[in-house]
Amino acid sequence: MMLRNKKKAGNYLKKALSFMRKYKIGPHTLVLKGLLGKIVNIPQEFLCSVSLRLLHLIIKAKNTMKVSDYQKIIKFAKRKGVLGIFHRWILFFPEIVLNVIKKGKKTELPKKILKSPIFNKEIIVYHIKFLGNLLVYKNQQLLKIDLTPQEEAFLTKIALQMSEPGKSILVEELYENFWPKSKNPYDRLFHLLTTIKKKIILPKHLIGVSSKYGEIRLFNYGIYFTTDQEEFEQTLARAKAMEQLGKWKLACKEYLQGFNLFRDAPFKKNFDRWSLDTRFKLLTKLETETISFVQSCFKNGDVEIAKKVLIKVSKILPHSQEVKNLLKVISNKKSKI
């Protein structure tokens, strides 16, 4: 079947069906009709045939869209030794497989089949907000899930480093960061991946471990990640560009939008090396950008706006002496008025 051109594949089948009708080839005609969706049931007298019985089960699963009916097909195909036929025929009924994936159940199909375009029409995008308590969105829908601190850090790390299909991370890097003293880090990685995939309703075949060029890596096979860190950096970049063009009011709005993305310090309960480094870098950037913004506010006479941002940031960076000093400067300016 031509996976990228279902219409063309259907035309080939219709030609074959016409030929079989002409020469009265009965059971094979039923197969083609079934694959083309032109029959809803296989006649009882033909169910003694293993292949037609298989097709009967597939058509039933398509009609009911029940996972249990799909599982019956798998059991039958294994028992009768017709998995190869099933793998070819199921390509004509992608909606059955997509329904199983959507419900978070195993398809038991080979990864090569699952990676075919016919099963990956819908682009899956996860938006991870970690500049504060972790929030996970799947295709713009907030997921009501509860992740452990380690799961939060792991998910954020792959979102940042495996943001699109084709990107990967060395498995050794994950071992060293999350399980530096473990004797069986692979088992821990496998367990963590399985748990996260289940919680965020991620199709199992879209992230997996593979060996390439002698390196074992974790690969992204077909999803997209975005984060609020990217939003923060892009928003501030736009603000600076506007400020340089002399459009302070527009720049100020962009700055405020960027600072609002920072809800709290990330990874408060995490103490692995990557989480600590990431938190330090992000909080350092927040402090630096805040100081720069406040200085621009002073130049443009927006002291009240500067004060609001400093108060917000002081809650995230309670030990920042620079932020405290700037708040004192504003307080002194007010007392002189």
Rank of each mutant, 00 (worst) to 15 (best):
K78A: 10
D228K: 02
Y255K: 07
K103F: 04
F298A: 15
L326N: 06
L91D: 03
F46M: 13
M20W: 11
A237H: 09
V97H: 00
K198H: 12
R53T: 11
A239S: 13
K333I: 12
H319T: 15
Q44R: 11
I113C: 02
K204C: 09
A153W: 00
T195H: 09
Y221N: 12
N120R: 01
F92W: 04
Y224H: 08
S18M: 13
R21E: 15
V294L: 06
I90R: 00
C48E: 15
T156E: 02
L160V: 12
L261N: 00
I216M: 09
D228A: 08
D272W: 00
Q161I: 15
V136N: 01
A306M: 03
F298Y: 09
S292I: 15
F19A: 12
A61F: 02
Q234Y: 06
V40G: 15
K80M: 09
L109I: 07
K183W: 08
K269V: 09
R88T: 15
S314R: 04
L327C: 06
L282W: 02
I305D: 04
Y137W: 04
V136Q: 00
L206V: 06
I196W: 02
I316H: 00
V82W: 00
T227L: 02
E122D: 04
K249T: 13
I158A: 12
S168L: 07
S51F: 10
C297T: 12
A77H: 01
K38W: 11
W248Y: 09
H127K: 14
K7A: 14
T107A: 02
I124P: 10
F293T: 11
L310W: 01
S331V: 10
P43L: 11
S168C: 11
I101Q: 01
F178G: 10
L109Y: 00
N63D: 13
G26I: 13
F267W: 02
L189I: 14
L256I: 13
L36A: 09
G208A: 10
L47F: 04
I201K: 11
S320T: 15
L47W: 06
A237F: 03
P203G: 08
P43H: 07
G246A: 06
A16T: 11
Y126T: 14
P185G: 08
L57N: 07
F19K: 10
T288R: 08
S335F: 08
I316M: 01
N220P: 13
R188V: 14
Y126V: 14
A251F: 00
L98H: 01
Y175P: 14
L202E: 09
L83H: 02
V136L: 02
L202G: 09
L91F: 01
L32H: 04
I207H: 01
F219P: 11
D69R: 03
S49R: 06
E289D: 09
N5C: 09
D277P: 10
P94F: 00
T227Q: 01
R21Q: 15
I311K: 08
E230L: 09
I305H: 01
